[in-house]
């Protein structure tokens, strides 16, 4: 981290290699669009690099990056939802289909959740943050995070049960 702050390309590459895939996966699971997920993850890295000088090295890098990813992904998903309401178009429907295979039903059920609930699920069960940490990352009361997680799990369970 210190070397990346100093402008070392190899240190930056190492930092990137260590965090890119998880950041990208998290973004995809929230936005459900491959191209947008790539943009969100890249944008989050760019924002992180842009603010490296301000970064407190005593703190871990991953939560900082994941916070940016989650918030940008939520912003995008909200904008997209608004755009769909305004345009009435479903042009991204085909993009929302994940590759077939393991977890296809989970992906589809996840895609049916509101973006805020998806983000809570991803932060909790993919990235392993506690509800308190998620509350800090999304700037929400902890109770709100707990209720989002509860509702999301209920809906996921219901949808998956219904499909069986």
């Amino acid at each position: 981290m210190r070397e990346a702050q100093g402008g070392s390309r190899s240190a930056l590459a190492a930092l990137y290699a260590a965090h890119w895939r998880r950041a990208h996966r998290a973004a995809y699971l929230i936005v459900h669009d491959a191209a947008v997920a790539e943009d969100v993850a890249q944008d989050a890295f760019l924002a992180a690099v842009g603010a490296l000088d301000r970064f407190d090295r005593r703190r871990p890098f991953a939560p900082w990056l994941h916070r940016i990813v989650a918030n940008r992904a939520i912003d995008w998903a909200r904008r997209e939802a608004l755009r769909r309401r305004v345009d009435g178009a479903g042009e991204r429907e085909q993009l929302a289909r994940p590759p077939e295979g393991l977890g296809e039903d989970v992906m589809e059920a996840l895609a049916e959740l509101p973006a805020e609930q998806r983000a809570a699920i991803v932060l909790r069960y993919l990235l392993d943050y506690t509800p308190g940490e998620i509350a800090g990352m999304l700037d929400l009361p902890r109770g709100t995070v707990n209720s989002r997680l509860r509702r999301a799990l209920d809906r996921l369970g219901t949808q998956l049960e219904a499909e069986r």
Partner: peptide, 15 residues
Amino acid sequence: EARLRSLLREAPIPV
């Protein structure tokens, strides 16, 4: 929850 964790980590995503 354990199965959800495992699915989120292992499900193939388009990249």
